[in-house]
Simulated scan of single mutants.
Amino acid sequence: MAEDCPDGDYLGAYSRFFSEFVAKVNPYDQLPVSVSSYNVTEAEIVGEIINVTLQYLNQTQCPASLQAHLVHQVIQEIKSMCKKQPEDCGFKSQEKTYTSLKLMQAITGKVNEICTRYLDNSRLALLPPPPSIPLPQIAAGGSKNCRRKMEDRYVVLHDLHSIFGIEDDSVANYYAVFDGHAGQDAAVYCASHLHQYLAESIYYPTDPERALRDAFLTTDRQFIEKSQTQKLCGGTTAVCTLILNKRLYVAWVGDSTAMLVKRDNVVQLVNPHRLHREDEVQRIRKMGGIVMQSMGTMRVNGVLGVSRAIGDVRYKPCVTGEPEIKSVPLDGTEDFLILATDGLTDYLEPAEILTVLYHEIQRNPSKYTVLCIRFDSRYIYVLLTIITYEDT
């Protein structure tokens, strides 16, 4: 793969990663990655494993083509460990949940163990080669500006099917941005679990649009239930994209955005859920809510500036977690997919965003190499760029 092993020697690239990773391991570090503020149920454990594993692997620049295999392996071994030695994973029998700190330590310990195994060349040689279709290259970043805490989150999941062990010949890539408000709890929860509920949906992968809707509603319902027992708060917008079988699926709630750049033309994929939309205002009023002006803008019940979101328990059912979904074919003229919060799009026009991106590519061409992605007999040039900025 071009982005992982320029000389085609993927085993050499993997070997270098494992050597560097193991050399940097600090077995006495009790908090090598950030942990969730909530206890984890049995139903949520896969999402938590993925979140912790990727945080940990990416500290040492794990090759994108290797991530899915390692994450899947960690999922299998931690699930087995939870059955055989639940206390070692932080299981609390009285509450039937896992403490996030103890579970995180079990997961990172397992990652250390697995990576150490692959220092053995005989085991290394058994690793599967990278997918035949190169994975898109990602640039991601964020800034909290004057906020005390960063409430936004983004997710990059290459090869979703390999991570979840889904038997399907196609390669699926998932990218998402979550813009939290009134706290980071909802954004953190979505960043760990929305893709889990997508992959676990009975409609996936045969009906991606229905599966995305199912995943949003499940995530919203599960977060609301959790907030009633574990004092989680706040809400989040969400824009999630799935690239599968030469199609781009976009699902969103709230005012974060997705834009597809095609030969210098910007295609807006999202119609933001703000209160300038008359259909959203009418829907809220029919549900018994009030839309009124406050601080110079229209808000739900005079407080919330978006009409749809995950979480925001006290505004349900007026502020729904049901997404709008769009599917567009990929025809080979795509250059970028941009996902961004309103903290970026409120201050920069699409043309200005493009200027910034092209300037960065010119300034750092090696970092932003555009990949040639093959779908059957077609070639599609795509640079996936995910940008998230906290509001000023």
Rank of each mutant, 00 (worst) to 15 (best):
I290T: 13
P272H: 12
G183M: 08
R283C: 05
R123E: 02
S36R: 09
D331W: 10
A23D: 12
E322C: 10
D207T: 10
T53P: 06
K144D: 01
G302F: 11
L103I: 08
C233G: 09
D159C: 00
D391W: 09
D152V: 06
I163E: 00
S294G: 09
K102M: 10
A125D: 12
D255G: 01
T369L: 11
N51L: 10
V291M: 08
Q55S: 04
N51C: 08
Q30F: 06
V52P: 03
R147L: 11
I290L: 13
M292N: 03
M81E: 14
T345I: 09
A2L: 11
Y118W: 12
A309I: 01
C146W: 11
G90P: 06
E225P: 02
M287G: 09
R299K: 14
T333W: 09
A351Y: 09
E349K: 15
L337H: 06
S132F: 04
R213I: 14
S170C: 07
G235H: 08
I163L: 01
P63G: 00
V281L: 05
A187D: 04
D264N: 15
M81A: 11
M298V: 02
V250C: 06
E324D: 15
Y28H: 09
L127I: 05
I361P: 02
I138N: 05
H161G: 02
L242F: 08
K92A: 07
T97R: 15
E42Q: 14
D214I: 12
E167R: 14
I284W: 06
Q282W: 04
P63S: 00
S192Y: 10
L119S: 03
I284P: 03
L212I: 15
Y189Q: 01
E278M: 09
Q59H: 12
V46N: 03
P317S: 05
S65K: 03
T236M: 05
Y175A: 00
D214N: 15
H161L: 06
S201T: 06
A187Y: 09
V250H: 02
D342V: 05
H158R: 07
V52N: 00
R263K: 15
P329R: 14
C146R: 13
I310M: 04
E280P: 05
Q282F: 08
M1P: 13
D346I: 04
V291E: 06
Y38K: 05
R117T: 14
P129I: 00
Q293F: 08
Q94T: 11
L124K: 00
L269S: 03
E167D: 11
